[in-house]
């Protein structure tokens, strides 16, 4: 009987990304050894996020209220919008602690070969947001790949008539890496984007 309970937990954990059977087994026995309260808190957090998570009505970040904590924070600069592809990108940029503006999550990137057209993303919502608010700058922080680049180019085109400053995050080499191992496209982009010291 005990074996079945553990087996069930292992099977459930293997559904998580990057978790194979061995890791799942390790995690299962770790959970087994946890104090009951800690284990219940993990379980409750999973149930809570599934029951209450929704998209922010303003920026489409994940939240448990109508608007997310960033949109409802009065200290944030509402004149700047950083456009990202996924809610996880918001967390990554927030970790830098540099950006003090607000976000807009597109919930994907344009991908013509996969049938992801502009109407399937939150691009229209972005346009409405820009028209309804005094926005000074839109920072396009979509991924530095073909899909992200196409999305950034598309948004730049549709924002042109609105005469709003549009910028794109810089390309470059990851800190801690070595120039010797960088590919020619990344390196040429880094050279193009060089700045005066």
């Amino acid at each position: 009987m005990t074996q079945n309970i553990i087996e069930n937990l292992v099977n459930q954990l293997t559904k998580l990304p990057g978790i194979g059977r061995k890791t799942a087994q390790r995690l299962a026995f770790f959970i087994l050894a946890l104090p009951a309260n800690d284990a219940k808190e993990i379980a409750a957090a999973i149930v809570d996020v599934k029951d209450n998570a929704r998209f922010c009505s303003n920026c489409f970040n994940i939240t448990d209220a109508d608007t997310c904590s960033i949109c409802s924070d009065s200290s944030r600069d509402r004149n700047k919008i950083c456009v990202v592809e996924e809610p996880s990108n918001v967390l990554a940029i927030e970790r830098t602690g540099i950006f003090k503006g607000t976000y807009h999550v597109l919930l994907g990137a344009l991908s013509p070969l996969d049938g992801i057209t502009p109407d399937k993303l939150k691009i229209n919502a972005l346009l409405i947001r820009i028209k309804d608010n005094p926005i000074e700058e839109v920072i396009l922080a979509t991924n530095p790949n073909t899909k992200g680049e196409m999305t950034a180019k598309y948004i730049t085109e549709i924002l042109k008539p609105l005469n709003i400053k549009t910028s794109r995050i810089a390309y470059g080499l990851p800190i801690g890496s070595d120039i010797e191992f960088a590919d020619e496209v990344t390196l040429s982009k880094a050279l193009e984007g060089r700045r005066d010291l």
Binding site: L113, T146, E149, K153, Y154, E157, D183, V185, S188
Partner: peptide, 27 residues
């Protein structure tokens, strides 16, 4: 190992849409 990146083509939005049609034919 990159032989030719053709990255200039990827940077042209409308051109890339035309190229997508060619890629789609292969797929």
């Amino acid at each position: 190992d990159i032989i030719k990146p053709f990255h200039k083509l990827r940077e042209d939005y409308s051109g890339m849409l035309n190229i997508m049609e060619l890629l789609e034919m292969n797929l």
